[in-house]
Design a protein around this nucleic acid. Structure first.
Lengths: 150, 150
DNA sequence: CATGAAATAATGGCACA
DNA sequence: TGTGCCATTATTTCATG
């Protein structure tokens, strides 16, 4: 994909395991000095390979425990950009994709409860470009983890 | 959900924006001293509210750019635990849910390319408890962000 | 929870492969 | 270009009030 070498990959993996690990600790894992690790991390950030650092919070503790995937059947060929412009106004929508298959767009939605979800769904359904929706509600999350490839 | 107060919420929000921010910097945002912030973060980790810290990596740079959602129609009522046990063996599966609707289980899958995805899909389809699958391939990710509620 | 001190980590300069 | 080493600055972390 991009010119990141094996050392970069190992640094990223170490930081994926613990994003607050000191550069020295990361360096110990990859056999590099702390300044060397920092320089590489800085460069990875500059190039956009690393877009930032975050905290992993138990999703149940946000208060928004109702999770659903909503397929959008768009009336006519609406552009992805326009769909994005409309759906990003809903903080409940955390992911949006254009997809293959019957539907045109897939939305990943979180809401506080069923009533909240129903309200959001009816609002999205009322958007002019939406012909029809099909929702799949998450009953229980079995697995949630990060991509590890590379 | 859990007894986290407003200060905890603001600390978590600050750390979501920058997971490597110093406790002093976080404290400046929430009007707390660095040690006070650290104690709260330690306690949030102990209680599992904060499960850890990570680095945000450009998904395209992992090399696994083929993304899909796969609905699993299970033969008979297979338990969620058993589904989990089988699908977590695939590193390509990063999320799994039991869901409402026609299908029983929804899988979020990443693969290097179409061939890789096809191979994984046929392997999953061959699992004894899987009667049928329906895949939705992601054409382009329009939006990807975190829950912000709380 | 704040303060202050000691240990630890981050970061910029400099020499070297 | 990229690394290690060193010194300085900043941060973490633990004591005490």
């Amino acid at each position: 994909m991009v010119d990141i070498d094996d050392l970069d990959r190992r640094i990223i993996q170490a930081l994926m395991a613990d994003g607050r690990a000191s550069y020295g600790a990361v360096g110990a894992e990859v056999n590099l000095s702390a300044p060397a690790v920092k320089r590489r991390v800085d460069r990875l950030r500059e190039r956009g390979v690393i877009s930032g650092f975050t905290v992993k919070v138990d999703p149940a503790l946000t208060g928004w425990t109702t999770e659903a995937y909503v397929e959008l059947f768009c009336s006519r060929s609406t552009s992805g950009a326009e769909v994005l412009r409309r759906v990003e106004a809903y903080p409940e929508v955390i992911e949006a994709f254009t997809v293959t298959g019957d539907a045109d767009t897939l939305l990943h939605v979180f809401a506080a409860d069923m009533q909240h979800f129903e309200r959001v769904l009816s609002e999205i359904s009322a958007e002019p470009f939406v012909a029809r929706t099909r929702s799949v509600l998450v009953l229980s999350p079995l697995l949630r983890r990060e991509i590890l490839s590379m």
